[in-house]
């Protein structure tokens, strides 16, 4: 690196700090998804039809949205297993308000996002200031959120949810130029998060915290406030995701909402090349990981295979994706030592 002579020192230093804009993992994922889409297009009659791709993109949205927050959290070396509980609380409170007082779209979205942010701040403060491992903190708050969620459900389903959220991806109201609005929102937020992680000091600090929290603190990074914010952002993203889940569901909401989302999201994040040990990761990879998982589950159904088989493929993809990442990392370290 030192041998490089560039006329603009500012660019050199930035280029030296920044990781490559596109990682190897992302290129591979794009390739795998493209191959899968082509194969599924050949072997199934309707995979590439708009009637199939549209819902697929809408269904990617909740996992990808929560995945943005989860990527931030995992980059700092943490984890958040409470997202399913948060999603349930956001969805059920918003649904109840929609049914009882018919709040307009923007208010409903705000309610969901603010609730998500508040629940996320509970996680954030406990993780940052209690110095207990995040997985334990969020196990605890997961149970807490489930309690709040089930209480709000009050042992029944929420029925007659109005079509306020249709603009997020249901029917004709939910698409712009053929692209589901939910997916457009995902792409916009992923782009913003990518820019934030790469070009702002606060974003790059997250990598420093995940690489070595103590060293980050000694260089003057306010580790604890940053951690709180990371969990708050996750909650906010869950709030947005809950609205998409309400939009893509039926007019009634049952108590299984959000069930198992935490593992789905973590799977998408790690397939996308984010290191579970912290310090390395990308939101673009997370979006691609979510796309891959959704492609597999739609593809398995359209091929007429048992739908449960898709989870087997997800497991295999996790092993392959992370295995490739481990091998690349090893090779990178070896070449780094030689030079």
């Amino acid at each position: 690196m030192t041998s490089r002579t560039d006329s603009a020192p500012a660019t050199v230093s930035l280029r030296r700090i920044l990781p490559p804009a596109v990682t190897g993992q992302e290129v591979v994922l794009v390739g795998v998804i493209a191959v899968l889409w082509v194969l599924l297009g050949i072997f199934t009659p309707s995979f590439l039809s708009p009637a199939s791709v549209g819902p697929l993109l809408v269904n990617v949205a909740p996992v990808a949205l929560i995945g943005i927050g989860m990527t931030f959290v995992i980059i700092t070396g943490g984890i958040d297993v409470s997202v399913a509980g948060m999603a349930m609380v956001c969805a059920v409170v918003t649904a109840r308000l929609l049914v009882s007082v018919e709040i307009p779209l923007i208010v409903a979205l705000l309610v969901s996002v603010v609730i998500g942010g508040i629940l996320g701040s509970v996680n954030g403060f406990l993780v940052a200031y209690a110095r207990v491992h995040p997985i334990i903190i969020t196990f605890g708050t997961w149970n807490l959120f489930l309690y709040i969620g089930y209480r709000t459900f009050n042992s029944s389903t929420v029925n007659g949810i109005p079509s306020t959220f249709d603009v997020f991806g249901k029917g004709a109201a939910g698409t712009t130029l053929g692209v589901p609005n939910a997916f457009a929102i995902v792409v916009a937020l992923v782009a913003a998060a990518w820019w934030f992680l790469r070009y702002t000091r606060a974003g790059r600090n997250l990598f420093a915290i995940g690489g070595n929290a103590e060293a980050a603190r000694l260089t003057g990074i306010a580790v604890r406030p940053r951690l709180v914010w990371v969990y708050v952002i996750t909650g906010v993203m869950v709030g947005v995701a809950a609205c998409v889940m309400l939009a893509s569901g039926t007019s009634s909401l049952d108590q299984s909402v959000g069930n198992g989302k935490e593992l789905e999201v973590i799977a998408a994040v790690v397939i996308g090349g984010t290191s579970i040990m912290g310090g390395r990761g990308s939101v673009v990879g997370t979006l691609l990981g979510a796309l891959l998982v959704q492609t597999v589950s739609v593809g398995v159904i359209q091929l007429g295979w048992p739908s449960q088989l898709s989870r087997l493929f997800v497991g295999v993809f996790i092993i392959i994706a992370v295995g490739a990442d481990i091998l690349r990392e090893r090779a990178r370290r070896r070449s780094g030592r030689m030079s």
């Binding site: 984890i79 593992l263 973590i266 799977a267 790690v270 579970i276 040990m277 048992p306 449960q308 088989l309 898709s310 989870r311 087997l312 997800v314 497991g315 295999v316 996790i318 092993i319 992370v322 295995g323 481990i326």
Partner: peptide
Amino acid sequence: FRYPALITTLATYYAYASIALVITN
């Protein structure tokens, strides 16, 4: 293979659960 345990067992969580469901439909 030095996979993080969280990753290994997340993957096998999916794989084993899927096989359990598929073998008897």
